[in-house]
Nucleic acid binder design. Structure first.
Lengths: 363, 363
DNA sequence: GGGAAAATCTATAACGTTATAGATTTGCCA
DNA sequence: TGGCAAATCTATAACGTTATAGATTTTCCC
C-alpha cells in the first residue's frame, strides 16, 4: 500500500506487490517513460504521481505506484541530479593522518548505516599529507559534487568550516572549532574525560601526573589540556605535559619520551593519554624503565575499539563511541540538507565512568 | 600547454595559464555553453575540442583549452553520466564483519590514493549482518550506479563473483574464489604464509603446532589450512587446528579456547594465526595458563598494521601490505573499465620473511 | 579554373528527470 | 442550461553532455 521511493537502496516497494525479480537479461531499465507507456499517462503525470503531488488523482497515483513497483522502477540518479542539482551524495572528507588504531572504519560504517534507508550514497575523499585540506572542500563546493560534507580533525580556527559556513554549504563536523562560528558538530567531551581521568588517578593516590596530549593544532587537544591542568590544580596534584611528543608521534618516539621521563629523577605515577597507540607506547616505555602499571603507576586512556584492557588489564579505559558520532553526524547533516525540523545540530558526548574492573565505578 | 581534463579532482589546468581563483560569489559555474559563447564556437565543437577529437583544428583546440582553463571549466558529472552512462564511480563493497584491527581504512586510503589523479570517485557501501551480500551488488549492477566494484571477504564459491562475471560487469576482488571462473584479484598468499610460519616454528624446535584458522567460509581459510597442514606434514611436526573458534570469534572465546588447550595434557609449543586479534588472544590465553612466549612456545602471526611486536617483542610477524592491494585493485579495475591494455589482473602477494629481531632473517 | 577530396565546423537529437504553464474534464451553483 | 471554479492531466522546455549526420570551407590536382 505504501510506496517508499527511498527504501533501501532506492528500492521501490509496495506491501502487496513484491518487487519483481530482476528482468532476466537484456531488458532495458524502466524509466518514467516506460511507466507512462504502460499506464497510458504522460511522463510528467507519472513523475508527479510518484512524488505524491496534490494535483494528481488518488487512483492514478495508485495505478502508477503499482506499475512502478511491478517494473522495478528506480529513479535515474543522473537524470535527477542534472535536473535538480541534488546529488544525493554525502562526502566524508578525511585526513589520512588519523590514528593508526583508527576510528575511520567505524565512522564509515556508522554513517553508512544511517544512510541505509535513504537515497544517499557515501563518497569517501581522503586527503593526503601533501595536500591542502581546503582542496577537497573547494572541489566539492565548486563542482557541487555532494549535497553535504562530514569533516573530521577539526582545528580551533578551521578554514574549511569558515568556507562552508560563509557559503551556506551543508556540513557537519566530528569535533568543534572555536572561532565564533556556531556550526553543527558531534564532539566527545575531552575536557570532561581529562577531568574524569585526573580524579581517577588522584583517587588512587597518584600525585605526579603526566599526559601525552593530542597534536596541538587539533581542537580537542586544547580541551583535553584544559581539563587535565585544571582538574589537577583543583585536586592539588602535580602535573606536566609531554613536550617532545604528541599522541600522533611515532610509537617509538612516544615510548622513548616516556622511558626518559621515568628514568629521570622524579618519575610520574599517573598517566593520561587520549589514544590506543599512545597508551601502549606509554606502558611500554614505563615498563622498560622498570615501572609496572597498577603498582608503580596508573594509566587512563580513551579508545574507540575495546582493546587496551586486553593489552594490560590494569588499564583504566574510557570508551569513545564513534558509531554514535557517525550516526548523529549523518542524521543531522541530512536534516540540514533537506531543511527539515532543525533538530539540535550539536552534541557533546559525555564520557562514562572508567572501565577498569577494579575501578570505583560510582564516584 | 597541456590540458589535463582529469587532473586532480577534475581540475582543468594549463601550464601557462593558472586556473583562475574561484569567481567570487554568485557566478554561475561554466559549462560548455559558456565556453562556446566565449569563443564563438558551437557547443559540439567545444566538446570535441576538449576531448582532442581528430576533426578539430589545432589552434581551435588551443583556444578552447585556454578559455576552459581560464574559466575554470570542469565537466558536469551528471551531464556526462546521463548522456554516456559512465558514472566515474568505483564502489567498494565491504562486509562490516571485518577484523576489528581492520584493514578497512588502509584499503580505502590506498584506493583513494590511486584514484587521485583520475576522474573517479570512491563510493563505500558496507553491508551489514542482516543483509544478503548480493543486495548491494544487485543494486549496483541493476541501477548502474558505479562503473566497477571492488569486493572483499571472498568465498570459494562466491555468488557475487558469479553474478558479475556472467554479466561482464567490471569488478576486482581482494582475495580469490575457486569455482572455475578466472576473475581479477589481488590476494595475499596465505598458503605460503602458513608454510613460512610452520618452517619458522620448526626451526625453533617447535613440534606441536596449533592454529586458529580464519572462518571456514572465506577462501583464504582453506589456503592457510592447506599450507599449515601440508608443511607440518613435510616437516614431520604434529599439528592441529582449533575447532571451537576461528579468527573472527570474540577475543574472549579465542583466549578461552587457547587457555583450555594449554591446560590440557599435551600443550602446543607453536601457534600460527592470521590476525592481530587472534594473536593477542592466543598469547593472553597461553600466558594465563602459565606459558610464556619465546620460552614455552612461539607464535607466528600476520598483520596489516605493525603492532604486534609492540605487544610482545617475541612475536613472529609477517606483514600483509593492504595498501599495495588497494592500489593494485584500483588500477586494474580502472584498466578493465576503460578496456585499456589488459595489464595482468591477478596478483598473488608472496609473504616476506618473518619480522622478529631474533628470527633467522634469511633461510 | 573546375571539381573532388580533405579538413573543419555546426545543428540536432537524445539521455531521464522535473517545473511550469496551459489544456481538458468534472462538479457545482445560479 | 450556462458558466465558472476546481480537479486532474499534459506539452514543453530545460539541466549539460555527446554521437551523428550534415554543412561549410580549404586544399590540391589535372
Amino acid at each position: 500500500m505504501h510506496l517508499l521511493h527511498r527504501g533501501a537502496h532506492d528500492m521501490v516497494l509496495t506491501t502487496d506487490t513484491p518487487p519483481v525479480a530482476p528482468p532476466d537479461s537484456e531488458v532495458e531499465r524502466p524509466t518514467l517513460k516506460t511507466i507512462a507507456a504502460a499506464t497510458g499517462l504522460a511522463i510528467a503525470t507519472v513523475s508527479r504521481a510518484l512524488k505524491d503531488a496534490p494535483d494528481i488523482g488518488e487512483d492514478t497515483k495508485r495505478r502508477v505506484r503499482e506499475t512502478a513497483a511491478l517494473l522495478g522502477y528506480r529513479p535515474n540518479r543522473a537524470g535527477v541530479r542534472l535536473r535538480t542539482g541534488k546529488t544525493n551524495v554525502i562526502a566524508l572528507v578525511l585526513s589520512t593522518e588519523a590514528d593508526v588504531m583508527n576510528h575511520t572504519a567505524q565512522m564509515i560504517y556508522s554513517i553508512a548505516a544511517a544512510l541505509r534507508e535513504t537515497a544517499y550514497h557515501l563518497v569517501v575523499m581522503p586527503y593526503f599529507r601533501d595536500q591542502d585540506p581546503m582542496t577537497p572542500i573547494r572541489y566539492i563546493v565548486e563542482t557541487g559534487s555532494a549535497d553535504g560534507v562530514v569533516l573530521n580533525q577539526i582545528m580551533p580556527d578551521d578554514p574549511r568550516i569558515r568556507y562552508m559556513s560563509e557559503r551556506g554549504f551543508p556540513f557537519t563536523a566530528h569535533g568543534r572549532s572555536d572561532m565564533g562560528i556556531d556550526h553543527p558538530y558531534f564532539d566527545f567531551d575531552n575536557e570532561a574525560f581529562a577531568r574524569l581521568g585526573v580524579r581517577a588517578l588522584v583517587e588512587r593516590q597518584r600525585q605526579r601526573l603526566f599526559m601525552i596530549a593530542p597534536p596541538r593544532e587539533q581542537s580537542y587537544s586544547g580541551h583535553m589540556i584544559t581539563g587535565f591542568a585544571d582538574e589537577a590544580a583543583v585536586q592539588r596534584a602535580r602535573f606536566e605535559i609531554a613536550t617532545e611528543v604528541s599522541s600522533d608521534s611515532h610509537s617509538e618516539q612516544m615510548e622513548a619520551a616516556v622511558y626518559r621521563r621515568f628514568q629521570s629523577g622524579n618519575p610520574p605515577d599517573g598517566i593520561l593519554v587520549g589514544s590506543t597507540t599512545a597508551a601502549m607506547a606509554a606502558v611500554n616505555g614505563a615498563e622498560r624503565a622498570g615501572f609496572h602499571i597498577g603498582a608503580d603507576f596508573d594509566l587512563v586512556a580513551k579508545e574507540a575499539i575495546p582493546f587496551l584492557r586486553r593489552f594490560r588489564k590494569e588499564m583504566l579505559v574510557v570508551h569513545e563511541d564513534v558509531g554514535r558520532a557517525g550516526d548523529f553526524l549523518a542524521r543531522t547533516l541530512i536534516a540540514a540538507i533537506e531543511r527539515r525540523t532543525p533538530e539540535a545540530g550539536q552534541f557533546l558526548d559525555k564520557p562514562e565512568h572508567l572501565g577498569a574492573d577494579d575501578a570505583p565505578q560510582r564516584r
